[in-house]
Design a protein around this nucleic acid. Structure first.
Length: 113
RNA sequence: UGAGUGAGUCGGAUGAUCGCCCUUUGGGGAGGAAAGUCCGGACACCCAAGAGCAUGGUAGUCACGAAAUGUGACCGGUCGAAAGGCCCGAGCCAGUGCCACAGAAACAAUACCGCCCCGAGCAAUCGGGGUAAGGGUGAAAAGAGUGAGGUAAGAGCUCACAGCAUUUGUUGGCGACAACAAAUGGAGGUAAACCUUACCUGGUGCAAGUCCGGUGGGCCAAAGUUUUCCUAAAACGUGUCUUAGCUUUGCGAAAGCAAGGCGUGGCUCUUUCUUAGAAAGGUGUUGCUCGCACUGAAAACUGCGGUCCGGACGCAUAGAUAGAUGGUCAUCGAUUCCAAUGUAAUGUUGGUUGAACAGAACCCGGCUUAUAGACUCGCUCAGCAA
RNA sequence: CGGCCUAUAGCGGAGUCUGGCAUCGCACUCAGUUUCCGACUGAGAGAUCGGAGGUUCAAAUCCUCCUAGGCCGA
């Protein structure tokens, strides 16, 4: 879990990333990012009811993603707002598989330092 | 030992490490259902908060409870061999409605087959009448069974015994009710049909709501100013009538008569002036009525305030506002599967798998629904042993 | 989070209040018509009414509990 200043908190921030950000797609999640004109990179995770009807499953997915992102936060460029959308793939999201996809996406989008 | 049944407890454990939310810097941090949102309460605002009606809800009794479609015990019914389970469990002897199809007939109606009597006929059969025991239809058929009497044939038509309902009485029980006795009775079901009875019942819900700050434009809008208009009343105003009183003129000797003025009283009108918005009407009142409250109308201008944005409070001995309570590793582990081995049977060893339902958003009391598995206690029945 | 609504044949839509054989259109099947197709005509099949339980002689309909989808309030 990242500290609050490194998370996206406001609805407006999410809306800005939705509308103006660039998108990247992976098997189990999509990613949008947009510059926030600061030196701090902020992360937000979205797991809607389309992902699962059960609150337990949604929370689980968000926790897995946050745990990985926290580990590898240092690898990200500075000054980005990033939103991760979880897709419903039918299977539960695993830590190791998400870690692999996450590395691929960052390389593809050129978001690494 | 087996089968069944009821109640309750638990709901993976320990450690290391990297983190998160709150915090008074000490520390604290998911559940039995946190769920569904099905009831109730607390709290908050709306509000003229008064009455009546409607609507809606509840429905055995007693106790507990702030209340509840809540809980417990008991009563009655029903299912079960028992322990025990289940019951929206008031009233169709208030009224109305409905009871499809079939059937003669679906509730003061009626007779298809049948049974019996009378008449006609050679006979088959036909006509009239009696009957409701038997058959048939149907979910249900007048709804009290058995036996005897009775009859042309039959029938509670009569009797005996058994049973049911209502009323009354006695006894027991706080009570629902139960037991007993007497009298009376013989027309079904349905109220999760309208309805009747008794009791309860404002609305909205923390996105309730309170406070602070900001607010260019738009929208709504208290109050004020100006203009125009409306309604009503009203005179020292208009018109008209009247005649207590006073008075003028004419006629006359006078009394008096005639005409007029002032005044009195009534009706009428409202352009201006004055007053009022009382009455009526209108608006509002979160189902309706009474009642109550407010109120002349329109336009223009000013614009308290609201709408809008942000924050705080509401808000907690977990507690946020993209929503914390977690990730990884190790050990142990209910459980699953496989193999080997062994026994009358449960097993033992090795490997494998690695925990159900499910995540607080104002709080509380209940209900309902989901839930792998483990454990504890009680009871019933059956078998075996002592 | 709170407050509500809906579910009927492959699709759309009546019937639910007031219980009694589940209606209609398109689509589908067969036959006719046509040189062939379409259109047209005739015939036919297809739903135990989202699921479970209850009330009733009888439930799409009344009652209770679930499931799925949708709407409103920032």
């Amino acid at each position: 879990m990242l500290p609050k200043e490194k998370r996206l908190v406001k609805s407006r921030d999410f809306d800005r990333v939705y509308q103006k950000g660039k998108r990247l797609h992976s098997k189990s999640f999509n990613l949008s990012y947009y510059s926030n004109r600061t030196h701090v990179t902020r992360i937000g995770v979205v797991a809607g009811k389309k992902y699962s009807k059960k609150a337990v499953a949604r929370n689980k997915a968000k926790r897995v993603i946050r745990a990985v992102v926290q580990d590898e936060y240092g690898m990200l460029k500075e000054g980005l707002d990033v939103v991760i959308f979880v897709k419903n793939t039918g299977a539960e999201l695993g830590t190791s598989s998400f870690r692999r996809e996450w590395g691929e996406i960052l390389a593809k989008g050129g978001l690494k330092k």
